[in-house]
Each structure stands twice: as C-alpha cells, then as structure tokens.
Design a protein around this nucleic acid. Structure first.
Length: 411
RNA sequence: CGGAGUGUGGCCUAGCUGGCUAGGGCGCAUGGUUUGGGACCAUGAGAUCCAGGGUUCGAAUCCCUGCACUCCGACCA
C-alpha cells in the first residue's frame, strides 16, 4: 500500500482527555476513529490488524472443531424473556431495537438466545452431539461507562463459541481443549508471556469459570498469580479460595492488575432448558443438552496488545498482527524505491510504502508510531552503496543490506 | 448509577475574576528555499465559542437546564 493513497493520516496530537494509552496510539496512528464513547470505526490500518487477530482466532477455533456461522444482531425479545435475561438486563446494558414496524427486538449482547434455538432445529439424538458452533460478530452492550480506549466498548466484535454435549464429562473434556486453544491464540497474538489462565467465579454450575488475564496497568481486574503453576485467581474469588493457588495450594501469590482478554464458562443446561434443547440417549431417554460458552473480545485483544507492546514513540506490533510486515521508506523520490516496493509485493510480502513527499523526520516518526516490525529505508546514501537500510522496530540499530538480498531477509 | 472535570475553525489548544475585528500550534491552499529524526519563510482560506434559556449596556467568559466526552468508584450476564 502506498502511504500517499491512504485516506487517513497520522496526527501529532490527541485530545488531552484521551488518557488511555491504547486510544492515544491507535488514534494518532490512524488505526481507529472514535465515533462516540465506546464506539469506534476500524480504519484501514486498524482493520488490517483486526483481521489478522480474527484469522488467528478462526484458525485456532477451527482446529478444535469449531463450525463458523454468522448469527444476527437483531433478536426478538421473546427469546430473551424465555431465558429470564430480559428482565435482568433490559433496564441495564441490553439495547432495545425498535422501528415503526418492529416493537420488540433487542441487539444481542451475547448469542445464547440465538444459538440454542438454532441447535434445537438440528439436534435430536446423542448421535448429533457434540457440536461446536461459533461466530465472530458484533456485540452491543450499553455500558454505563465505556473506558480505556477500545478495551471496553458499547459495540465490539466478539468471537463467541458455544459447545453442546450429551454429558458433563464430554463438556469437561472439551473445556480443557478450549483452554489449550486459547493459550495458543494469545501466544500467537504476541501476549502469551503476559497472559495467565485465571480462576474466576463460576456462577451456579461449576465451582470456577476461567478467564485469560493479561498483565497491564490498563486492566480493571486484580489477579493473584502463582508463579509455580503459572495460573492466577481473580480477586473476586480470593476469599473463597483462602488466598491459595487452586492447583498447588501455594499461598505466596502476587497481586497484579490485568485485563480479561478471554473467558470460558460452563453453562450446564441454563440455556438448553428454556429452549427445550434436548437429545434422546441410547436408552431412549430425553435429556437436556449440556452447554459451554467461550468468548474473546477482538477490539479488547487488539487494545491489550498495544498496552503490552509499545515504547514512547509508538506501537510495536507483534509480527503476527502487524498491519504490514514491512514499512518501506523512501527518502528520495526515486524509481529505485518503486522498484523495491514492487519486488516486495511480487514476493508476497505485505508492505506499507511511504512514498509521500514529506521530510524524512516525519516519515521516521510515523513509522515508529505505526509500528510495523521491519523497516527498509531507501536513500541516496544507501543507493550509492547499492543497498538499503534494514531495521527492526524492536531494535535501535540498523544494517545495510544489498538491494539484491532484500528478499532473502524475509525467507 | 454516585462523585469530579471538560466541551472554542478539520485536529490540539489559549482566553474563563464579563469589555474592541476570539489568539496560537498542527493540518490545508499558493509561491519560494530545504532534504537522514516530526524543516523554514511569505501569503491565504477556514469559527453557529456543544445546545437552549437567563442575567447584563455588553457573554466564549456569570447563572439555570439539557446533551456529549474523560477520569475515580459501583456494575460487568
């Protein structure tokens, strides 16, 4: 992509009100635009990052049997009344959706009320189970107080996976597979080192649920980490847990602030009961389907990566989610840099090409802010030596690389 | 939802104990100079000072109401 063609621009300034670090960098860099509190547009650069994250999640969930669908945002509130969640949430964070001809719909804030009746249409026998259904789709939550940039929004994308089982044991087994899968996702997204499996309150159906918490001061949760087991417990169950690691009993836990990037939850029959989602077992008995649900907020994950990976100049994207792999900077209006750009494109390398006619200082500053992993600089100086300058975003120093050898770097 | 703060050209802001044509920076346009860490000079365009009401000879400035945004707390299926 030629940077001169991007309709967005970087900005040197951001409102003094915007104290959240992820919001500052993402807005200045032209990744997102805030429409109103907790409601953001993904701009071309930001949407590329978003899609990389989405794809990491999709591949990982597919690998544990997830079948991707796309469920609607609109839902008759009848469904929500069936589960009792309408009464609880209609006066709170549940958006109602009305028009002249539609008087009784809501905007889904999660999709149990859609996916459960959906599966009822297809599940009859134990032989139809288990099933794993997910989508990556908008959620609407009328938060009283959106905060921390894109970490807590009123409209956001979420991967929500729902699993359907004949038995509790089968759910438990799958639940463990999802744990591993989530760990892979956060590792691939570049925050594996800072992310902890965390015991949290489980509601009425199991002793605990599990969250994936990433250490950052921007987080809203306090977790207590057991360094032996590399797990944590959420402060909300600390007293239950008597300040001990649930896995090894270690009572020397350290407190950290963290943000919840993922959550896995055993639902039991909470949603299958109201929708009469059942199956017939081998002995011809009618039994309720056992469910689990598993969520990851996409924007929250994106914002968390920024919170975890940046320096004073800007974002340092992990290669797996960077908007472009290479930021090519020409310090000279020259056919040579066009040629290098085209060679990189031909080799299938994602490259953002700063072909703008502006000062080199501005280009460097933008490159630092935007945070692509690799930088290639083409200038008169480098071309005299038949070379370009190659620099990683994570490193201060650069090296000269012969033009002919550029592609070898990326093999 | 409780508490605190803030709304000024496209963006960031100064002005806020009322007083001349609302000042600056960024960005934008035109011309010139410059070219390895956010260049410089000149000229120019661009403003219902969040909205409505009130006080006053006079309101961006004071008062009331509403809306929006930010932060702290509560909440977080």
């Amino acid at each position: 992509m030629k940077q001169s063609l991007l309709f967005t621009k970087t900005s040197k300034t951001v409102s003094a009100e915007e104290t959240s670090l992820n919001a500052q960098f993402l807005i200045k860099g032209g990744f997102v635009d805030k429409l109103s509190a907790g409601v953001y547009t993904m701009l071309p650069l930001g949407f590329r990052v978003y899609k990389k994250i989405e794809q990491i999640i999709r591949e990982e969930i597919n690998s544990i049997g997830g079948q991707e669908v796309f469920m609607p945002s609109l839902c008759p509130n009848e469904n929500w009344k069936k589960t009792g969640r309408y009464e609880i949430l209609a006066d709170d964070i549940l958006f109602s959706a009305e028009s002249k001809h539609v008087k009784s719909s809501v905007l889904n804030l999660s999709h149990e009320e859609v996916v459960s009746p959906l599966l009822k249409k297809f599940v009859n026998s134990y032989q139809d189970l288990p099933q794993y259904v997910y989508h990556i789709q908008n959620k609407f939550r009328g938060e009283a107080r959106p905060k921390s940039g894109i970490l807590r929004g009123r409209e956001f994308m979420m991967k929500d996976l729902y699993s359907f089982h004949a038995t509790e044991e089968d759910l438990n087994n799958y639940y463990e597979r999802v744990k591993i899968s989530y760990k892979n996702i956060f590792t691939k997204a570049g925050i594996g080192d800072q992310t902890y499996l965390t015991y949290a309150s489980g509601g009425t159906f199991s002793k605990y649920s599990h969250e994936f918490q990433t250490l950052t001061g921007a987080g809203e949760d306090y977790i207590y980490i057991c360094d032996k087991c590399r797990v944590a417990i959420n402060r909300e169950i600390l007293e239950d847990q008597k300040n001990k690691c649930p896995e090894c009993g270690n009572n020397k836990l350290r407190e950290e602030k963290a943000v919840e990037v993922g959550n896995i939850f055993k639902l039991s029959t909470k949603f299958s009961d109201p929708f009469d989602l059942f199956y017939i077992d081998k002995d011809n008995n009618k039994k309720a389907v056992i469910m689990g649900c598993y969520g990851i907020g996409l924007q929250r994950l994106m914002g968390t990566i920024v919170e975890v990976s940046h320096d004073i100049q800007g974002i340092i994207w992990p290669e797996s989610v960077a908007p472009y792999r290479v930021h090519l900077i020409s310090l000279k209006q020259d056919k040579e840099s066009d040629k290098i750009y085209n060679n990189l494109l031909d080799a299938g390398i994602e490259v953002l090409y700063d072909d703008r006619d502006i000062s080199f200082g501005a280009k460097f500053a933008d490159a630092d802010l935007i945070g692509c992993p690799y930088r290639i600089i083409v200038s008169t100086k480098t071309l005299e030596q038949d070379s370009v300058e190659f620099k990683k975003r994570t490193e201060k120093s650069s090296e000269l690389v012969k033009k002919d050898n550029i592609l070898k770097i990326f093999k």
